[in-house]
Design a protein around this nucleic acid. Structure first.
Lengths: 192, 192, 192, 192
DNA sequence: GATGAATGAGCCTTCATTCAT
DNA sequence: AATGAATGAAGGCTCATTCAT
């Protein structure tokens, strides 16, 4: 083909989408506004993403990948469960605080009902290692007994989200909140 | 003289709105669909709620009130902090599981940015007694020291939400999840 | 690159608007009817004119410009005041009779309260030379003394309008009415 | 019938209609606003006037009648043509200046295209005596020869309107404008 | 591939009119 | 007769998507 699709343009659209979706909400945000902020023509957006839904799904995967990187890179495979969990906890919280718009959009996407099964699977794939850690911890009886595994990971996310909200409200307390948040969480799940 | 505004119709609209909003999302849901499902003419919706925004706010208050009732009625004022928290926890979780659509809509409303300051205040008013409980518990050193109060209440909600999600996924495990969820939470915040 | 906005389409819309506004009135005329008569899609109207108000203002300017051309082109700068006034009088009357719809729409626009200050200014700009003529005539005492200048120009318009109404009613009398109308007017304002 | 229609209510509606139509325009004015300002229920308006169109026509006749009274009462049947014309001129101008809203509404009604033939006839009936005066004057060669009779009366109205506009703009000049306006008019039509 | 004009379905809201009370 | 809730057609405008250039 004469001109190849430009990675730059694709990214510009994704970035603009993040901004616009964060500000106006998924459905309320017009694709025209996104293309304008991305500096491309209205029609161009649709050569990179066939429909608005496609854009939504692509953005979801993109953000999830970035988040996975923030949480899982440098994962201390050999260290204790507590340290491993603390690693992903910090990664999550720090990323979320530093990327407010992406976090907001991610939250919206999660409840939008517009994500395809494939996107959801693709989005959770990079986190297997963490799932394994938890499974491992349970098997080795490091956690309170009787706790369903799903509850462990699900609540960690919920917990971290609550923590981030507070940090955003009082940034000066960031360390205290991040620390305290994990404390509650760990005290809750760990064996006495 | 003249037909009085019918409480029934108002409720029918609110109910239909809950259903339609839950299914299609706040912005994507057409008011025409709501009125149709409520069994009234399109225009009638607007004699009960001046704008779609008004409807949103009214629905928010309605749901919050119902939730408050579920959580706070029979609040064991004289019992221990643990029992009191457990009471609201159970009320919250049971209500959320029994009212999936309302819970979903509430979640959407909370992040919609379309609620007025008044609605938000009105929605949180019925929960003061619970806030007081937590404050009281902190003052009496029943909880782990150093925990910011906001973290306590915020995480309880986040936690309960996570728990409900799991129960919805595996209803047979309801009791286990509800119990286990509170255990983690309490173990996390309580003094050792 | 891309289709350029078509001057033809813009004119088609303006023409259709003239027809529809003349027939149904400014507010009663649906934009959908205008676009249909212009042979474009409903949405297209709004790529040429952002709002119905915009369309109104653009139409006003367009018509005023055309009218100015009809009245002021060939203005006999060097001839007597009477001849100069007669020139614009004839231009006005002839244009009005030949452009009934435009005249009607112009009248409606003038009393609509929907014109912006800018439009009004732009619309009166091309007529300065005529204003100057009157001012000049007064200063040179060619007109009856004591007549306020505003009355001179305002009544000329009112007068011409009345004349046109009559011509429209009895076209065969056109010359007589146009002649007679100016006679009354001139006899009214000129020095004895 | 149990309760007879109240003349007071009818008048209240007509008054309110005048106000609302003057302010918002004929089509833009909602009947609900009129009934509200009249202090009656929305439905009540329709027991007094079957449709909005009916209201418009009734209002037209009402205003025309009032105007006729202002112009024709005390008509100096025996005095000179000039004095008779001056009488109606003064009546018209004074009424128009004192009743700005009614004048505005009348102007709107006149160009609305919503008046029935009957209303138009009924509205012009009270002015026959004035028409006769003009006819009489022409027959007695008091006016410039060759002037079509329609032009005489039509331009008087147009002229008076222009005069009123100016008085409204500069009320302090009222006498001068009213006087000067008639002067131009009379000088225009009278035999030299 | 890039552009942005063209399209038309769809949405919220208004409003004249009807009708139950 | 009076009231005002109920009705549903209609209108201005937006927006995802297509398509001519």
């Amino acid at each position: 083909m004469a001109r190849p699709k430009s990675e730059d343009k694709r990214n510009a659209i994704l970035d603009a989408a993040t901004r616009v979706f964060a500000e106006r909400g998924l459905t309320a945000a017009p694709t025209s506004e996104i293309s304008k902020q991305a500096g491309v023509a209205e029609g161009t957006l649709f050569t990179y993403f066939k429909t608005k839904d496609d854009l939504l799904n692509a953005l979801y995967r993109e953000i999830k990948l970035e988040l996975a990187d923030a949480m899982m890179s440098g994962f201390p495979r050999r260290k204790s469960v507590r340290i491993r969990l603390r690693h992903v906890w910090d990664g999550y919280v720090n990323w979320g605080v530093a990327n407010r718009e992406k976090r907001k959009v991610l939250a919206q996407l999660n409840v939008s009902g517009m994500l395809s099964k494939e996107s959801i699977e693709a989005g959770s794939a990079p986190f297997v290692e963490m799932q394994n850690t938890i499974r491992d911890a349970i098997e080795r009886h490091l956690l309170r007994k009787g706790l369903p595994i799903e509850l462990i990971s699900k609540t960690m996310a919920a917990f971290a989200e609550a923590t981030m909200d507070l940090i955003v409200l009082k940034p000066a307390m960031a360390n205290k909140y991040r620390e305290g948040g994990f404390e509650i969480y760990w005290a809750g799940i760990a064996r006495k």
